[in-house]
Design a protein around this nucleic acid. Sequence first.
RNA 1: GCUCGAGUGGUGAAAUUGGCAAACACGCCAGACUUAGGAUCUGGUGCCUAACGGCCUGAGGGUUCGAGUCCCUCCUCGAGCACCA
Length: 860
Amino acid sequence: MYAGCKQYDFDQIELFWQEFWDKSKTFSVQEDPSKEKYYVLDMFPYPSGAGLHIGHPEGYTASDILARYKHAKGYNVLHPMGWDAFGLPAEQHAIKTGINPATNTANNVSVFKKQMKRIGFAIDWEREINTTDPDYFKWTQWIFLQLFKHGLAYVDECPVWWCEGLKSVLANEEVIGGRSERGNFPVIRKNLCQWVLRITRYADKLLEGLSNVDWPDSTKRQQIAWIGKSEGANIFFKIDGYGEEICAYTTRPDTIFGVTFLVLAPEHPLVEKIVTPKFKESVKKYAEISQKKSDLERTDLAKTKTGVQTGAYAINPANGKRIEIWIADYVLASYGSGAIMAVPGHDKRDHDFASKYGIAITQVIDDASGDNQLPYVGDGVLINSGRFNGLPSEEARGKITSWLRETKRADFAQNYKLRDWLFSRQRYWGEPIPIIWIKENDYRAAVANDKFYFKEFLPSEPISNGKDGITYCALPLCTAHLPLTLPPTDSYLPSGDGESPLAKIPSWLDVYVNIETGQIIPADSFSGKDKNSSWVLGRRETNTMPQWAGSCWYYLRYLSPHCETAIVDPKAIDYWQTPDFYIGGAEHAVLHLLYARFWHRFLFDIGVIETGEEPFRKLFHQGIILGEDGTKMSKSRGNVINPDDVVRRYGADALRLYEMFLGPLDMMKPWSTKGMEGVSRFLKKIWSEYVDRDGNTKSFHDNLSDECQRIVNETIKKVGNDIEGLKFNTAISQMMICLNSIQKAGGFDNVSAGNFLKILAPFAPHISEELWARLGNNGSIYDAPWPEYDDSKIVATSHKIIVQVNGKMRAELIINDVNMSEDAIFELAISIGNVRKYVADKKMLKKVYAKGTVVNFVVE
RNA sequence: GCUCGAGUGGUGAAAUUGGCAAACACGCCAGACUUAGGAUCUGGUGCCUAACGGCCUGAGGGUUCGAGUCCCUCCUCGAGCACCA
């Protein structure tokens, strides 16, 4: 049974086999303890209204080739797909049209799915998941409640990034250079009360875990930099004339003798206290100005540093010197203790500042290069440092900290750049946060009476929030009431004052909660007569979760997508564990990939899953495909390639082959329509080696020449190795070499005809299925085992040795015995005419022989 | 500014990791078959030179019998970070 066309009609062939795979559930997969598992994961797409982008099939084809190959190698392969469907575009579409984003999302998903099926990925579609499906986000909300219970979710009123363009707050990770990661709108600092996840508690674990994963270096480095752990010391400086001390964090305690002033952030709590009357006015003014500055202005490097004196003095604990205390906005209140010890001799910023304001600059580290230009920021040997003179920096750091520690003037300390994860968004299209706010009195009364439903989810400290002078406490929704779904509305626009559109739906917002049972009744249908002491009035949390929430655990849901009793069926995770291979874009290096690692470790720590501590042990980023003009594809440039057009014109197999042939998988590469023609030609050539002009299957030779045998076996070997190494471009060129030589030899033999299709199948599955069926095979080539190669056929019987004179190639020498003695080889080599010509009459200085490859005569 | 990564024909790129640079493909040139060719097949195609030959992996230096590959300096492009003390 096969499509049966006469010519290579890719449309007919591809549609035929796609239907076949669907009907026979070829890619459906179950746990099978008799087989080793292999879990291939793609970063699931956001189903945008624009449909599949030409970049999508790059990663998906790569993972598909790997999945099909591993299946052929006998693994039980899981290769699922789903939709990361909460997100901005659907919501903005809803705001514009008034149509519920769920409707629009469903349409987009069906387009994406159809497009992906048309490219022929070996995906088990029965495991399809969608983050906006209540059966899915029920468990996202459940995980939130676990975080809540374990004290990792809290609300905090603090300066957050507010994006007016999106009318929502954003996480640190979503702000890039003062603009929003999505939409590229400017952001500003604003004080708002928000949900925050305590990712900082996992900072060390997230850092250490990176040493045990096989990830691209650059991505590891980005996460390491984002976590930003540094080791150093807190040094306590006595303030002259006050009891208080100023704590300054430094990574360079070895430079303590070079501290000639202190700088506090303008917001530092001690500033007001220590400022002398003479400087009061100027300090106040400076603090006001810097508060008005945006963060972007404050961190603008080009700007010269500014600051003012406080008039107060501190004592350098190392040498007892009196040093000035300044305030300056180059010191951040949010890092370390908001105060620094300034070492202008060995810190660029401090040097700039000291030079501008005429503060003393002392050298305390000797620059080994002898170039004693300050500031010298490297390590060296200590000078002008009393008893520590002569010590190298590295050693001095520990010794000085220990010395100051004896008198409680310092202590060892670490710091992190990582901040807690701002988790709430003022948007409609996200998972509602399953929390109800009730008055603090009601909350405390219930807990005191020991009659309350949320015992299981009681955080050690109530999460509270003050509003209009009343304090409210966060009540977790009863897990039995999950999912908490989005209420219908016709107004999806955020109010812009920090509240989500959900705040405008009173029928959903105001509820009565039975504090004993967890039962909830909308306030507008709550009748007074039911009222007893257990019912309290509450207001639902109106914020929703950020888009990253759903993608934090989706790889677990694929394992048992229909499980109703847990986020993942224990039996399924016991078998499938975590993905063996994960592929997706590099743009998620510090967003999704950091958040998901956090959640995974949390779920692991609380015993919800029993796997390794890292979710993604092997990670790969596919490169970006540029437009034909070598620039990023964009509508405005008009260089966008639509995968539908490509499939229509050349077929899915050609698209798959081409995207893999383009170049190394992880590189940025420009699209080329001419290149498409090349692989398309290759497919036609393959066809014509199997099928004659009348559409009949050709007959093959009984056997092949040694040379063809060698190439066929070498090809089987190389294609397998290249797939394992994700070097698909060279795998394809090897198949081209193989076909070219088969063509020259006048065709395949029976064995190689089948084997060639088996190695082609992961790359171009449709044509492979069709030709495989025409060879008389039943069932799918997907289930055919990967062919073995014969190493003895690959070893060449004769060896070619390059003969060089003074490193220049002069001749080739063919020998049959690789183990021939060196002297014999030299003798043979030197007797070659073209070699003798260059060696004659010259003094032989050296003879080199690299076994089996090269001879080099060095003369005069 | 700092930290990485990358620079190879007209183009996309290969190179067993120190051993014939340019595999494979695109494009181009010539030819064959064709009424026709934007189909197919065959051959050619790094640069200089009439030729012998010489020169070629961003530039310059170094190590080595031998360097695209290792080391140093510089240039260009890309990515990330950007006052984190």
